[in-house]
């Protein structure tokens, strides 16, 4: 017998709804507050002095921020592109039934997720210095490719696992060779996975602070490094403005990736 009334709903626990709402307030409160204060006309952090976009204009005109944004974009686009290509290859290579070394390969790919970031950071620094790779945009990009690979790999692999081999078998029955069936059948089906992999890698690269902080060199200040530098001097409304813009960028990409995920789920079923 199913109990339908709320009082006897077997799934319901009193207080859980309240906790969930509290969690949401906790998660969103600080970022909403910082966004609101970024429009405060006066410098004060407690008093509201009227609506203004001054801090945004100031942030836009800040040379350091402009350069850092450029650097961040260059690094994030290249690192996530390379990582996505490599991750796609790896997912294709590891596809299918079990074989010797599959678990080891998977372990190696997920290693960047397991190693604490601070350890990866000092390891990269020490290694780059030891083998003589100059610190700068190049070293940051290289370090980013490493930790972006697993983030790109996971959605691609998840999608690939959902593509049953009989699609390719069907293509072969129609006299497509391996290449043709891959290009015309597997790749298009894999595409949404590749896109979400790319987006995740892109956000992760754009946001990274700790590893970048260690392997950055002259003129290679990224946006998070610039923001950290500003914060160390104190919280100003300009930082609130920059933060809010970055928040919007992240939210945009996450929502995009989420929508792609839903579309993917629909096309798969």
């Amino acid at each position: 017998m199913r109990r339908k009334s709320t009082a006897h709903d077997v799934k319901r626990y009193p207080g859980f709804r309240a906790i969930t709402w509290a969690t949401m307030v906790f998660l969103y409160g600080p970022i909403i507050v910082i966004a609101i204060y970024s429009f405060n006309e006066i410098r004060s952090i407690t008093v509201w002095g009227g609506f203004s976009l001054d801090w945004y204009i100031k942030a836009f005109n800040n040379d350091l921020i402009q350069r850092a944004t450029m650097n961040s974009l260059i690094i994030a686009v290249s690192a996530s592109t390379i990582a996505t290509v490599f991750a796609t290859f790896a997912a294709l290579g590891m596809r299918g039934r079990r074989y010797r070394g599959k678990e080891a390969a998977f372990g190696l790919i997920s290693l960047p997720l397991i190693v604490p970031e601070i350890v990866s950071a000092v390891a990269s620094l020490v290694f780059f210095v030891l083998v003589g790779i100059p610190l700068g945009i190049g070293s940051i990009m290289l370090a980013h490719v490493v930790f972006c690979i697993p983030f790109a790999y996971l959605p691609i692999n998840a999608r690939l696992e959902g593509i049953e081999p009989y699609y390719e078998e069907a293509a072969r029955d129609l006299y497509a060779d391996g290449r043709q069936s891959f290009v015309h059948v597997v790749l298009p089906m894999l595409f949404p996975g590749i896109i979400s992999g790319f987006i995740l890698a892109f956000i992760i690269s754009l946001d990274d602070f700790i590893i970048t902080n260690f392997v950055a060199g002259p003129g290679a200040t990224t946006l998070p490094l610039a923001i950290y530098g500003l914060v160390r001097t104190g919280l100003t409304p300009e930082i609130n403005a920059i933060s809010t813009m970055l928040l919007l960028v992240s939210i945009f990409f996450v929502t995009l990736s989420f929508l792609i995920g839903r579309w993917q789920a629909r096309t798969q079923s």
């Binding site: 949401m24 998660l27 969103y28 409160g29 600080p30 970022i31 507050v33 910082i34 204060y37 952090i45 407690t46 995740l200 956000i203 754009l206 946001d207 602070f209 998070p224 923001i227 950290y228 914060v231 919280l235 930082i239 609130n240 933060s243 970055l246 928040l247 992240s250 939210i251 990409f253 996450v254 929502t255 989420f258």
Partner: peptide
């Protein structure tokens, strides 16, 4: 989606937001 969004927002920014909120003279 609501839980996922903060997961992908820059950790540095989120920490700054929290610091801004709870400091002695903060909101």
């Amino acid at each position: 989606l609501l839980v996922t969004v903060p997961y992908w927002i820059n950790l540095l920014i989120r920490t700054i937001a929290m610091l801004f909120l709870v400091r002695d003279n903060g909101p």
